[in-house]
Structure formats: structure tokens, C-alpha cells
Simulated scan of single mutants.
Amino acid sequence: MAVSGLTRRALLRGSAVAVAAVAVGGAGVSMAYAADDAPVSLPAATGPYAVGTRTIHLTDDHRSDPFAPEGTSPPRELMIQVWYAAGSTYGLRRAPYLSAGLVPVVEKRFTLPEGALARVRTESWLNAPVHHELRDAPVVFFGPGRQDPAATGTAFAQDLASHGYLVIGVNHTYDGPVEFPDGRVVPQNPGTGDVALLRKYSDVRAADLSFVLDVLAGERGATPLGRFTPPADLGRVGVFGHSLGGSAAAEVVRTDGRFAVGACLDGALQTDAVQTGLDRPFLLFTEPLELPTWSDFMAHHTAWGRRMILAGARHYSFTDLAPLGVSLGLAQVWSAEQFAKYFGAVDGVRSQAVTAAYVRAYFAHRLRGEASVSPSLDGVDADFPEVAVSWVSGG
């Protein structure tokens, strides 16, 4: 099971985590899993609300899809998933982690045993009504890493939704895998180390985020979101993402003034914000690695900003794959080298919980205006000794 072609820098640049190229012992792994099809759960949400979710198909008829097959120019189509505080869940069923058509695509990408992701259980109730007490929910967008579906941030989304946020996960077609309601499955494009192409992906993602906010705001006609989501507070809109999703978060904060705050989870920044900084709050939450784009961004940023470093982490410590790696027993079916390249030395359940706590504290402080938050965003927190604050900008 060789992974020598996957460098640390390539992982962060959203390029060669084309993990389908990594051999994982094939049938032996699937056979080992055949005897264990017990459900596994994502980390529990920490808020007081049950969580509802829906998926929505959107078409941007103002843009042609730049990644569509050569010789075609269809409008840009997206699938989004919305998480929110739910009312009654009586008679409802739990939402699947992934649509049926995406399960084998994502398993192949991460060289997971066949059927592994079908075992994952979410806490989200499919098509649940909105909680009747919820009013003016802050809006938070989530973008996944390069080649990944938005579902890889489900645990973060459920946690924020359980605290009263409206969370919108955006699947970026061709960049990551997408299944549409008519059964079309569009797989992710190949990995790349081409900086210009990565920049293009980041820019298109930022345009996708602005389009979805247009839809939410009713600027593209009657919004399909209004039928079931809580009244959104469009004066409080945040965005965060993993890997290239974090780059797009910085870019959309730079280009669209409606996005008040942003955060990047361990992603190289393919955006002009590296040279200009931002005039709004931004959080970097990363593994213990130094990248030029982070250094340049921090040098130019003038607004509130923090960089938190999670000791022992690696690139996929900041996704659902980290706790699922524990629940699915990937340490037993992956090589030690591959497991370490994905998750480092920190326990996957702990790394996701720590990241979720800081994401939640950040949006509580910078989006909701809560004066006192835990964990601390200003220094070492006794409950999170593995996190160091390496950069502080603003008060």
C-alpha cells in the first residue's frame, strides 16, 4: 500500500489526495469488512436543538459551467445541503450520510472498504420542520476540500445547526463528486498540482457561494430555501471550509461584502487575499506546518485574525474522516504510513471535537457577538492544551 507519491504539500494544495491511486489490499479489505456491517455514528452535536436537513438542486442561469465537457456550455448546476434546528421529528427518518450514488465514488477516492460509508449514521432528520422558536438564524456556509463532497463536514454542520445556525454545505460540481435528483452522478475531476488551475477552482467556488447567497436572499426569484428554513439573518453570514474550501472562504470574503467572517481549516490559500489580507475577521485553524500562503496572508491581514495550531494533526484531522477513521477501524485496514499521513498522531475523535469547539466559539464571538466564549480565541485554553495560538491580529 504505497503512498510515497502523496507529499504533505500536495495534500494541502488540494491536489494529489487522489487517493484512488493508493492500493489498499483490494478484496482482502472488503472481505474483512463483510463480517462487520454495524452502524457507526458521527460525533454527537452539542447544542440543545435536534437537527433537520434537506438537499436542494440549484441552477445558476447567469453562468456557464467552466468545468463542463469540452464543446458544451450548460449552466452551472449545484447541489447544496442545508442543516437547521428541527421541530418535531415524529415519523421522520435519519438522513443518509451520502446519497446512494456517491457512496462508491467517495469510498474509492479514499480507498475505503466497500460498504464502509453506508454504515455511517447521521443525527439529521430528513425534511424535518423548522423549530418554531427559532428566529433570525445566523447563516454559515461550508465548503469541502478539493475532490470532496460537502458531506465530509457533516459533523461540523450538525453541531452548528444544533446551536441555532442555518448551515449550508455546497457541493462544487466537477471539483468534487455530485449526485443530482435525476440520478446523474458527476465524479470529481482528477487531482492537480497546477497552481493556476487550483486558483480557478477556488475562484469558481467563491462564485458558487455568492450565487447560493443570492438565492437565499431572494435575488434570483422566489427562494426554494424559504419554505422550510428559519428566517435567516442575512446581516450575519459566515463561511468556512476545509482545504480548498478554506481558500474559497477567504476569496468570497474578499470579493463579496455580504460575508462578514471567514475561516480556513488547514488549506493553502489560492486567492489574492494572500497579497491584500482581508478587512473582516478570519481564522486559520491548521496542523503544525508552515506554508508561504499562510505567512503572506497573515503579514497583510489588518482585521481581527487568529491562527490556531492543533498539535499532532494532519490534513484530514479537520474532517469527518478523522472520527470515522476511528469508528471504521481504518488503522487496521490502512498501512500505518497512510493512516499517519491523513491523521497524524492525534486521535481522530479528539481532533474533530477540538476543531468543532473552536469553529463554534469563533462564530459565536465574531458572528453572534458573544463577548465571552469557550474555548478561548486569545490564548491557551486549559481544556484544549493541544491548541496553540501562533498569530493574533486585532482585539
Results as ranks from 00 to 15, higher is better:
Leu328Gly: 02
His132Ser: 14
Ala20Met: 10
Phe240Val: 12
Leu166Trp: 03
Ala331Glu: 14
Val105Gln: 06
Gly153Val: 10
Thr223Asp: 03
Pro375Glu: 00
Asn127Asp: 15
Gly143Lys: 00
Gln147Ala: 11
Val140Asn: 04
Gly26Trp: 09
His131Ala: 15
Ala18Asp: 15
Val106Asn: 05
Asp279Cys: 05
Asp214Phe: 06
Gly91Ala: 10
Leu209His: 08
Ala268His: 06
Val239Phe: 13
Thr72Tyr: 08
Pro177Lys: 01
Ser374Asp: 13
Tyr90Arg: 14
Trp304Ala: 05
Tyr201Ile: 12
His365Lys: 13
Arg121Thr: 14
Trp391Tyr: 15
Asp60Leu: 08
Gly312Asp: 09
Asp347Arg: 00
Ser41Glu: 14
Glu290Asn: 08
Asp175Leu: 09
Thr302Arg: 12
Asp279Phe: 00
Val103Tyr: 05
Ala196Gln: 14
Leu321Trp: 13
Pro66Trp: 03
Gly176Arg: 01
Asp203Ser: 11
Leu213Cys: 06
Gln352Met: 14
Pro385Ile: 10
Ala44Ile: 06
Leu225Ala: 11
Ala128Arg: 02
Arg184Tyr: 06
Gly193Asn: 12
Ala361Arg: 02
Asp159Pro: 01
Glu114His: 11
Gln188Lys: 04
Gln158Tyr: 09
Ala361Gln: 00
Arg205Tyr: 07
Ala303Gln: 03
Gln275Lys: 13
Trp83His: 12
Tyr342Arg: 07
Gly145Arg: 04
Asp383Gln: 12
Leu6Met: 12
Gly325Pro: 01
Lys108Ala: 11
Ala268Leu: 09
Glu179Lys: 06
Val17Trp: 00
Leu324Ala: 09
Pro323Met: 00
Ser202Leu: 08
Phe110Gly: 08
Asp266Val: 10
Arg306Cys: 06
Leu216Tyr: 02
Glu179Asn: 05
Arg366Ala: 12
Leu134Met: 15
Val212Met: 09
Val130Ser: 11
Arg366Pro: 01
Ser243Trp: 07
Phe228Cys: 08
Ala45Lys: 10
Lys200Asp: 12
Glu70Arg: 09
Thr89Gly: 09
Ala45Ser: 14
Asp296Trp: 11
Leu126Val: 03
Ala100Cys: 00
Asn189Ala: 14
Ser317Ala: 07
Val103Gly: 05
Leu289Ile: 13
Val274Met: 02
Val167Met: 12
Val373Met: 05
Met79Gln: 10
Tyr90Lys: 14
His242Cys: 08
Asp136Arg: 15
Phe384Gln: 00
Asp65Tyr: 10
Gly145Leu: 03
Ile309Phe: 01
Ala20Pro: 01
Thr255Pro: 02
Ala336Trp: 05
Arg63Asn: 04
Ala322Leu: 02
Asp320Pro: 04
Ala85Cys: 04
Gly344Ser: 03
Ala217Trp: 00
Ala18Tyr: 11
Leu134His: 06
Asp256Glu: 09
Phe297His: 04
Asp65Cys: 08
Pro231Ala: 14
Asp272Arg: 14
Val105Ser: 02
Gln338Trp: 12
Gly245Glu: 00
Arg258Met: 07
Pro129Glu: 02
Ala250Pro: 04
Val139Asn: 05
Ser124Trp: 10
Ala68Ser: 13
Gly221Lys: 05
Glu77Asp: 15
Leu328Ser: 07
Pro281Asn: 00
Leu283Lys: 03
Asp36Phe: 06
Arg121Pro: 01
Arg121Asn: 09
Pro149Trp: 07
Gly241Phe: 01
Phe285Leu: 15
Lys200Phe: 04
Gly14Trp: 08
Leu330Thr: 14
Arg13Ser: 11
Gly164Gln: 04
Pro74Leu: 02
Leu265Phe: 14
Asp256Trp: 11
Tyr165Gly: 00
